[in-house]
Design a protein around this nucleic acid. Structure first.
Lengths: 104, 104
DNA sequence: GCTTCACATCAACTTTATTTGATATGACCA
DNA sequence: TGGTCATATCAAATAAAGTTGATGTGAAGC
């Protein structure tokens, strides 16, 4: 079974690797097909494929098949989801802030 | 030397691990000292210390020394920085969208 | 100064992620 | 149908991250 934390971690895994950040950066200027990314970046075909899978699994990138080519672009809904998730995870809740600390 | 991508990746590394997401979740209800986190979570002392270092390095968590105790809490500025960074990294730029793709 | 406590750091180990080359798949074209 | 191209998947190797127990450090109390 997959925990909610594992699920959330997957979203941010996309952003934890230098190569993937470079891919994302390149996609900012528009949709790119895999062959373009391979020739522009210092990466092999299977390596790119691996990273694209991680990116697509995070929801931040979406892919589109066109014949034998695969095109990748940033997903607007994926971005929105990630941003909202990040905010939610890191925003304090207004619970009874009972400081049950050993040291106070 | 450290690249800008490595720097950015560090921010999101905080959110890529289940244990760290659990720590962040616990900090949402307020500042906690290390000893409390250790007794609440299934984690050893050195393990917690390791994760707290990653979290503090990301800027999302900040620590405060008080005698021999260390208190941790979510950093508002760290959160804001991470959110803005995430938005920036994943938002398309309005460059001349020249699709120099091999396949079109 | 000595001891204790809370935490950080280290080193060895285990686990997970990434890379790389080889092979499989599926679309397209002759 | 057979060949080629683009990409995915696999398996082996390497690298990076996380875990664990032992040791170091600095604050506080005696």
């Amino acid at each position: 079974m997959e925990t909610i934390h594992q699920n959330n971690a997957r979203v941010f895994k996309a952003l934890c690797d230098e190569k993937r950040l470079e891919i994302i950066e390149r996609l900012r200027s528009g949709e790119k097909c895999a062959c373009v990314l391979i020739e522009q970046m210092n990466i092999g075909q299977s390596g790119l494929s691996y990273h694209m899978k991680v990116l697509c699994d995070s929801g931040i990138v979406q892919s589109r098949q066109e014949g034998k080519w695969t095109h990748y672009k940033l997903s607007e809904s994926g971005r929105d989801y990630a941003v909202e998730l990040l905010k939610e995870l890191t925003t304090p809740v207004a619970e009874a802030e009972t400081q049950d600390c050993c040291c106070n």
